[in-house]
Design a binder for these strands. Structure first.
Length: 571
RNA sequence: CGGGGUGUAGCGCAGCUUGGUAGCGCGCAGCGUUCGGGACGCUGAGGUCGCAGGUUCAAAUCCUGUCACCCCGACCA
């Protein structure tokens, strides 16, 4: 490719709206251009990288015996109704209606389509397991797109769906795990594999592949000693016992003229924070229930865990009016003891969820559902019984992991995920069954596996850039070699042309900067675009019958003959 | 969806308070001098000032509405 003909050349000026490095560099270097928020044109340079990433992903997926196919972009809405995902508040579908009035969802993920496809076939246990995948544009009605390619409304995703028996599943999940590790390793990305929340996808467990980055939106914890890694939504930690040997003392109501915060309670009673109960009241809009979360005072409530434990979908904090008028309590003094079973006005039930940490403390203290009244010596079981008891505590950096090491907090970009779906979809959708060994019908056990191509591309830039521009790993660089001809003399032109022909016919992808611009501009653009090798052809190099070769990542150039050049850049 | 902010040439911005025929820098085109880390001179092209109403003799500027985009939050692979 000759630079003079390239559409989307690098630009000296940079936009002001680009807050993160990958966004700014990709736009400035001519890889992408914004259409509207969260939707991007992929320019020729960007598309080359995009396709190279796809090639790597495809190679490893195929090696794992996954089979590529393509599904329609418009999904019949009936399929989504079959799994109740049109009403799920967690996933905003993009919908579209054709002129006959048929409703479609713009595909944002394709579990239903995959199930619908395989139930069109009469499949035997002999055909299992199998894993089908596709590359296709996905649509998400993100409330707020941001960060260039990191969070968009329309993007290319590799999504795979495995169908098997329950016994076969673990091996497939492990194989996808290994495949993903191999893919990201080839792309040059260091990823942590972290346990995560399934969210609206369904299923019981899943793992995210996270490239560590300050620009990432995923917060997670690792225990470097044991290798434990989990998203903050699901991270667990070891809860140390406090005063479990203390004698149970009689409950004692007391006057407590104090403020509403935990600190106010600590100061007023002169007792430790951990001995106080933290009572947080939520309301779930989806199931119309109050959820009262109770936890040890030195911990915070993890809303994701709480939603899982309580079967809630759309949690929000209860308002002061609701606390006072509907529940007859008082903000800052909420307590499970004497809490109403349902709202006095609304009739909405109140569900009490107690954290496991409540069993590590005795003789706790906390509010009494009245202003300036507290109760001392509260004990679980004796004085109150949660409707649900579960781990609903939020992990924090520095806590001990279940394995005993210290939890370290990290931030990263979620570039891929693997989900166990189990029977979630095959239970909800009719006829998702194969014929088993005994000749009867049996439901498939499923998994799904996604990689965001554009996000991965951006994650690579986040990982590989310096103050001058991008440093593409050779595995996905848009071109392997960049040639700069310095000066417009015929000798230089001929020599550069000749080199370009040689390398191209040797099967090496070359971007030849044949523009009549000054050297500084060529070097700056080359650094910005991040092509792995830069070769300079000038009067000087011709005089020495050599080429100047410099790797983008290195500071020093070396002078090589043509055969040495080919050997160097081809490796 | 809540809070804050911005829309003027491809990009970055000024002009708006106090209405009077739209400007600067970069980039782009032409010519010339240059040519190993973003040169210089001259010439030139390019904007119905986000859109729609309104006020006015006159609106980029004032008023109303609307749309888009950015940041923080909520939400989310």
């Amino acid at each position: 490719m000759k630079m003079s003909k390239l559409f989307g050349k690098p630009s000296k000026t940079e936009g002001s709206d680009y807050k993160i490095p990958s966004h700014r560099l990709l736009v400035q270097a001519g890889f992408i251009r914004e259409s509207t928020a969260g939707r991007y044109y992929l320019l020729p340079l960007g598309l080359k990288v995009h396709e190279n990433i796809i090639k790597v992903v495809r190679k490893h997926m195929n090696a794992a015996d996954a089979q590529e196919l393509v599904m329609p972009t418009l999904h019949p809405l009936e399929l989504w109704q079959e799994t109740n995902r049109t009403t799920s508040v967690s996933f905003e579908l993009m919908k579209i209606t054709d002129r006959r009035g048929a409703d479609f969802a713009l595909g944002g993920t394709a579990e239903e389509m995959a199930v619908d496809l395989i139930r069109k076939f009469n499949i035997s246990y002999r055909d299992l397991p199998f894993n089908v995948y596709q590359f296709s544009n996905k649509f998400r009605d993100e409330m707020r797109a941001r960060g260039g390619l990191l969070r968009v409304r329309e993007f290319m995703m590799k999504d795979a769906y495995s169908f098997s028996t329950e016994e076969q599943f673990k091996a497939i999940y492990q194989e996808m795990w290994d495949t993903y590790k191999a893919i990201f390793a080839e792309l040059g990305l260091n990823v942590d594999v972290v346990a995560a929340d399934n969210g609206y996808i369904g299923g019981e467990y899943c793992h995210e592949f996270v490239a560590e980055s300050d620009q990432g939106e995923s917060r997670y914890f690792i225990d470097p000693q044991s290798g434990y890694a989990a998203h903050e939504d699901v991270a667990t930690f070891r809860v140390e016992d406090k005063n479990v040997d203390e004698e149970l003392r009689a409950m004692q109501p007391v006057d407590a003229e104090r403020g509403p915060t935990m600190e106010d309670g600590v100061r007023f009673h002169d007792l430790p924070l951990w001995q106080q109960t933290k009572d947080v009241l939520f309301f779930d809009e989806a199931t119309k229930r109050y959820i009262l979360a109770i936890i040890r005072g030195d911990f915070d409530v993890n809303e994701t865990k709480l939603m899982q434990a309580a079967g809630a979908w759309e949690l929000r904090a209860a308002t002061e009016e609701e606390v006072r008028e509907d529940l007859g309590s008082e903000p800052g003094f909420i307590s499970p003891i004497g809490m109403v079973k349902q709202g006095k006005k609304s009739g909405f039930p109140v569900v009490i969820v107690g954290d496991a940490s409540l069993r590590t403390v005795r003789n706790m203290y906390g509010g009494a559902n009245q202003k300036n009244k507290d109760i001392l010596n509260i004990n679980i079981d004796r004085d109150f019984t949660p409707d649900i008891e579960a781990d609903i505590a939020l992990a924090q950096a520095g806590m001990k992991s279940a394995d005993g090491g210290e939890l370290v907090e990290k931030k990263g970009i979620e570039v891929g995920n693997i989900f166990q779906l189990g029977y979630h979809y095959t239970n909800l959708m009719k006829d998702a069954e194969f014929t088993n060994e005994s000749g009867t019908r049996e439901k498939y056990y499923m998994g799904c596996y996604g990689i965001g191509i554009g996000r991965t591309l951006a994650a690579v830039v986040e990982a590989f850039h310096d103050d001058k521009g991008i440093l593409w790993p050779a595995s996905i660089a848009p071109y392997r070699v960049y040639i700069a001809s310095l000066g417009t003399s015929e000798a230089v032109q001929n020599a550069a042309n000749e080199l370009y022909e040689h390398l191209t016919s040797a099967g090496i992808e070359v971007l030849y900067d044949d523009r009549d611009v000054r050297p500084g501009e060529k070097f700056a653009d080359a650094d910005l675009m991040g092509i792995p090798y830069r070769i300079v052809v000038s009067e000087k190099t011709i005089a020495n019958a050599q080429y100047e070769v410099k790797a983008r990542a290195e500071a020093e150039a070396s002078f090589l003959s043509l055969t040495e050049v080919i050997k160097r850049v081809a490796s």
